[in-house]
Write a protein that binds this DNA or RNA. Sequence first.
DNA 1: TCGTCCATGTCAATAGTTTGACACATCTCG
DNA 2: CGAGATGTGTCAAACTATTGACATGGACGA
Lengths: 152, 152
Amino acid sequence: MDEIALAPERTPAEELGVLIKETQAALNQRMAEVLRPLGLSVAQYACLQTLHDSPGITGSELARRVFVSRQSMNVLLQGLEKRGLIERAEEPGPRRERSTTLTPHAAVLLQSARAAVAEVAGAMTATLDPHERDRLQALLVACRDALTDSPG
Amino acid sequence: MDEIALAPERTPAEELGVLIKETQAALNQRMAEVLRPLGLSVAQYACLQTLHDSPGITGSELARRVFVSRQSMNVLLQGLEKRGLIERAEEPGPRRERSTTLTPHAAVLLQSARAAVAEVAGAMTATLDPHERDRLQALLVACRDALTDSPG
DNA sequence: TCGTCCATGTCAATAGTTTGACACATCTCG
DNA sequence: CGAGATGTGTCAAACTATTGACATGGACGA
């Protein structure tokens, strides 16, 4: 009763691709859930967190790290500025860039957000021992680099 | 000169989270690049591929598997229908569902798309031997399940 | 020095997605 | 049998993000 196998099966590599998407989607959803009570979207959190790690960074660089266009990052920053979470330098910098930094208010909020996100991430890797975690990290780095290096 | 470590460092689990996002973003971008010449977006490809694996599936179920709302899946399907890639049953089914199937034209197109995507996925795992691939898959499954089981 | 090139910031238009709401059909349980 | 719960399809509005375009301000090389 089997159909003739004209349709090729899904390769292991493809299954890995959908698995990565599934995992990322689940992680994103859980993060959105725990960040919602704080009034933050995942993109906003990533923005604040990156800004905390690299203060005074430019908007375009921020956009690259968060994987959005610099235009959407701009509107995102406008929203955060209105809420008093960030401050942008008025004086245009070396090129034309406006240095962006977190306000004390944002630093406090970020602490709560970080705790919530860390809990989600911890739950994700709860069943993994440290060795397995390192192994997973190394394998993912290999996949990411293989994807980003090849195109040029 | 060290600042007091009020700001907690990023935990290994969190680094894993951003790594998953980076890998998924890179994969998505590469897929978009190779699918663009075929006139397909990544979402459209995922839709056709899922429909190929499970013919006659309902739109809502399709939306769940592709991780979009059933409303956006609806407009997505409308676009595919106009291009003659899918056909939706007029007769409302058991509940109110309209069975959706691929047209022969879509099957041909999907073959090219599958080949292109398989190449990208293969490049991603090129540096991994089969054993490492299986290990990565098992670890990702553990992470995904830990995220989807806990909330309920 | 000057012209070309690159990068940032921003505006406008467009496309894609989500949220909220409603009608309809089925299932389930009292 | 009947009322509520559940699931599907669809419309409208709001939101988010992308693409395209432009001005501005350095950087680099002839």
